[in-house]
Structures are given as C-alpha cells and as structure tokens.
Write a protein that binds this DNA or RNA. Structure first.
Lengths: 296, 296
DNA sequence: CCGACGATGTAGCGTGGCTGCATGGATCCC
DNA sequence: GGGATCCATGCAGCCACGCTACATCGTCGG
C-alpha cells in the first residue's frame, strides 16, 4: 500500500486517464499503469476498468482513491508537525489565477510574501469544469464561478476570496451611458460580447438575458477582458465585465445591474493535502488578507 | 516521508530504543537507525537525542511520531476500503491474553471465528506498564488493570471487555470458610499470596489491606493463579483471585468481599491502525460478544 | 578497568520501480 | 470501411534505494 501509488490512483481519477496522470506526476504512462496494477494486485480487487480506449475507476477504485486523500492529508500533517519546529515556513508555492484575477491579485501578492517563500505564478484560464483538475499541478488555484453555480465538489478545499459584481459595459457614446444603473429590460436587442462556451461568465449572461425575456444576441466570444473592453469601446457590442478586475479601459462605462443579481464568486481551490503544508497556508493567508483589502 | 520510516519512529518510541524497535519490526538495529536518520535529514530537524547509551525522541520526534499514527490509520482505512469489496474478511490476527484471561477467552474465541480467519494466540503475562508495548507485536492484547487505575494512555484504542470481582480465596478448612462473604477487617494478620511487583492485582491487595487498617503480610509472590490456588488449598496463605478465571481448584473457597470494591477490568488493547483492519474488527467483535456472554 | 550493551557508520548485495520501446484495442475521420 | 491516431499495457534493462553483516565508538555495571 504505497502512498505514491495511492497518489497515482487519485491522479488517474482526477485527470481522467493514465497518460494525463503521468503528465502531472512527471512519469511515463507505463509507470502509472504499473503502479495501479501492483496496487490492484495487492488489494485483490480490480481498481480500474477499460472503457473505450480510456479507463475509469471501479467502485473499489473510487473508494480507495477517496481513502488515498486522507492518507495524503495525514502525510502532509506529519510533515507540517515537524516544520512547526523550524524557524519560518520555507519552500515554493505554485499559484495560478485566471487572467483578470491574476492581474488583480498576483502583483500585490508577490510583494507581500515573507522571505524564504517562493511563489511561482501562472495564469491559467480554463473552462469551469477544469479548475479542479488544476489543483494537481498547482497548490493554490484562484478560480471563479457564477453566483449560485454548483460548488466545486468535496474533493477540494474551497476558500472564498471575493464576490465581484458583474456590470454591463457600454461605450461612452451609448444610449444608456448616461444612466447610473441599468435594468435587464433595457438591454433587449443589444449585441453581446460573451466568453467562450463553458467559461464562467457565459451562464450569467444567459441569466441576465432571461430576465429581459429575450434570447441574447451573441456576436463575439472573447475571453480576455481587455480585448472585450476594447471592442465595447469601439462600439462593437456590450458586455458583462467584472467591476474590479475588468482591466480598465478608455471609452467604456460600467453600469451596475438592477433587478437581477449578477456576479461571480472568486475562490481559492486547494487540494486538502496541499492545504496542510505550512508554506501554502502562509501564502493563502496573505491572499485572503489581500482579498479582504480589495473587498473593503 | 516514507510511512515505513514513520512506523519505525513510532516503534522506537514505544519500544524505548533502536534495538527493541528493530526486534518488533523484524529488522536489524542498523536499518532502524538509518531510517530515522534519513527521516531526520528529510525534515531538517533532529528527531532523536542520545541519552546515556540509549536515546529518546526530541519534541519534534514526538510530534512526528504522533502524526505517524494518523498516517498508519489512514493507510489501514484505505486497505479496509478495498477489503470491503471482497466477500468476507480474511487474514490472520494475533491475539494475546494474560494467563487467566487466556484460559477464559481463547478456547471459546477460537471456536467462534469465521472461516478464512486465522487467529494466532499467545499468552503474554507482563507487568502493567508493558501491555501497551505488546500492541506492536500483537493485534489484540487482552490486558487487565485494577479498578480505578490510570488508563492505558491515548495511543491505544481500549475496548472494555469485562469487570471481574476479586474474591478472597481461603482453604476449605479456614476459619472464614463457612461465611458467605468476608470483610477486610476480618482478614487482619492473614498470610497473603500476592503477585509479582508491578503486576495488576498487587495494587488491589494493597487497597484491601489498607481498608483493614494493617500492612498486608505477603509471604509468597505467585503469578499463576493455579499455583496460587494450590498453595491456598494447602494452607500456605490466602489470596485474591478473580471470580471467573481463577482456574478452579479443589479445597479452595472464594469469598466475595464486602465493604470494599475489589475488582479488575479486562480490556482489549489495540493500536488504532490495527483496529481499522476488517479482520481484526471481526475478531474483536467476537471477543466482545464472548465477554458479554460471560458477564451476563 | 574491563566486559557488555546499545547506537551508528561502511561496504556490498538484492529488490523494486522507472524508462524506452513494442503491442493490442478502440475511436475518429475521410 | 480502412487507415491513422490515441490510449493503455506488457517487456527488457538499468538505476537506485534499503537491507544485512561487520566494525566502531561511547556508556554503564562489576
């Protein structure tokens, strides 16, 4: 019952395959396959079953993968118990954030981390369903989800950072630009600039449009808010942009929505075992404090 | 952070030394020493310190050993999670009991265990302080302690099996043999047959004697209740014997004590990680049921 | 002061796990 | 429908890690 093999099994589950698991574990697919084979032989139950050209975990495999998480947590706790006797937390922490949050958080986070702690940043913008998978490669994943969307599941630790309202961005010359707020009904017929399918904000737009009673007319799908903002400024449509992290832009006016609650939640996602590491905790604490500052 | 090394560290603590730990782990002292050395190098803190010609754990070592227990528990839970998908629990369980409990429990326990489960019995009669250490070698340790004695510590799981009154054993020709019960005051001046220093019942005798107001006159120290019973029968003294497991004897009469609560508790001691094993649980359940039968 | 005990280094061997490559299915797409 | 592709899995070979055996050093008892 090798913890490394258990970790490998978990990776196979979360990454959805041997090859993908091998990727995050920095191993060859062969090694991964052998590890789960040995594991299955040890416990005497099949842990995986072929499905198509891939595989999935059997119920026993699922149960073992769940238990593997507790093993990993216990091991990290053991490590932390010793690190507590050292002077200060040291080590490197990998942090990722989707583009706009990266701009909002990462520069200020980097200037806050104490000496001896290395923070490796990355901007990872993935579809909603893929944020959790990132936690295998990255210690702290800053992710976002629309208000009221389902949670991230019970296999990751979720630390809420911020709730950010989504405003309607219109060009300064727009017929609505003079208003202080805007109601969904006033937006019927507008040309919308949304994000790619599956990305967090797209469902919010659908909800806003539903409140206006009409199907939204989406003319562009742009993930980068800077680009979207520029397109809005140039009069190519209106868009939903986050109030704090829209990336700023000339020629654009943000109008808070009334009559409908539109916003996104920004959460930090961590694997429970990684969350036990003292270095990770220290960086996470800074991130939370930073979020509190921004919110306040 | 190898779980095997963590287990080794725990063994060094409970067994009180490298050599003793190597013994229960079936390793050479050199291997044990190397494992803790590597572990200490990994975490960057000294885990042990020399004291005399032996060693003891540093505070960090203690903390890590505590955490190691949780790791072991998590690993066994993982194993159990898979075993739950197998038909029935299989494997071998080592059970030990002190002599009189061995006679009381083991024969009936062996005839109760389900097929596929091997129970390896041993009669281990050790001093009170050494019962806990046995759990490193043996899955279920049946131990006893006097009423009101301190607990076994928080590093072992304790399952109470039975409370057994201790009666005064007198020869059938004794002046008190005709009575139904006996009071401590009536026992002043008697010659006592006790057990070796440090063994569970000796403190109870001290308590009984204290109730009679006199120092007990101990003329023999016999651990085996059969031998003690024979000596009583032959008129060489009186003794405190457990009501159910005294081993039977001709020419001896057991008188319940009044005015003082004299008894011993019989507990099953398990390492928390071993307690997670399904086979162990099944045997333990049988043992509890057996104890309930005897008690009732 | 010598003998015994207990922990710790060192050399050498064996085993276990990983890489690289080849194989066997299953799916996609033209 | 058939070739190309992707994915998991066997197999040989190599490397490294951990154990044993033996030697050494320090400490306690007689």
């Amino acid at each position: 019952m090798d913890p490394r093999a258990l970790e490998t099994l978990r990776a196979v589950r979360t990454q959805g395959g041997v090859t993908a698991a091998a990727d995050v574990l920095h191993l060859t697919p062969s090694a991964v396959s052998q590890q789960v084979a040995v594991l299955a032989r040890d416990v005497g139950v099949a842990l995986t079953e072929r499905v198509g050209r891939g595989l999935r975990l059997t119920p026993a495999g699922e149960a073992l993968a769940d238990a593997a998480l507790d093993v990993a947590v216990a091991l990290e706790r053991a490590q932390a118990a010793c690190d507590g006797f050292l002077a200060a937390p040291r080590g490197t922490v990998r942090v990722s954030a989707f583009a706009s949050a990266a701009q909002l958080f990462l520069p200020r986070l980097l200037s806050r981390v104490p000496h001896g702690v290395d923070v490796e940043c990355a901007d990872e913008d993935v579809a909603q369903a893929d944020f959790v998978g990132l936690t295998d490669r990255i210690d702290i994943v800053v992710a976002h989800r629309p208000d009221g969307a389902g949670s991230w599941g019970d296999r990751v630790r979720v630390v809420p950072l911020l709730r950010e309202p989504l405003d309607v961005a219109v060009p300064t010359g727009h017929r609505l630009a003079g208003q202080e707020t805007v109601h969904p009904a006033e937006l019927a017929g507008e040309a919308w600039i949304s994000v790619r399918e599956g990305f967090p904000i797209s469902t919010v737009l659908a909800a806003v449009a539903a409140a206006s009673g009409t199907e939204p007319r989406i003319v562009h799908r742009i993930n980068d808010f800077h680009v979207a903002s520029s397109l809005v400024a140039a009069g190519h449509g209106v868009s939903l942009l986050p109030r704090h992290s829209h990336g700023g832009g000339e020629g654009v006016r943000l109008l808070p929505l009334t009559g409908v609650r539109a916003g996104r939640r920004i959460d930090a996602l961590l694997r429970p075992d990684r969350a036990e590491r003292l270095v990770v905790r220290s960086v996470l604490d800074e991130l939370c404090a930073l979020a509190a500052e921004i919110d306040g």
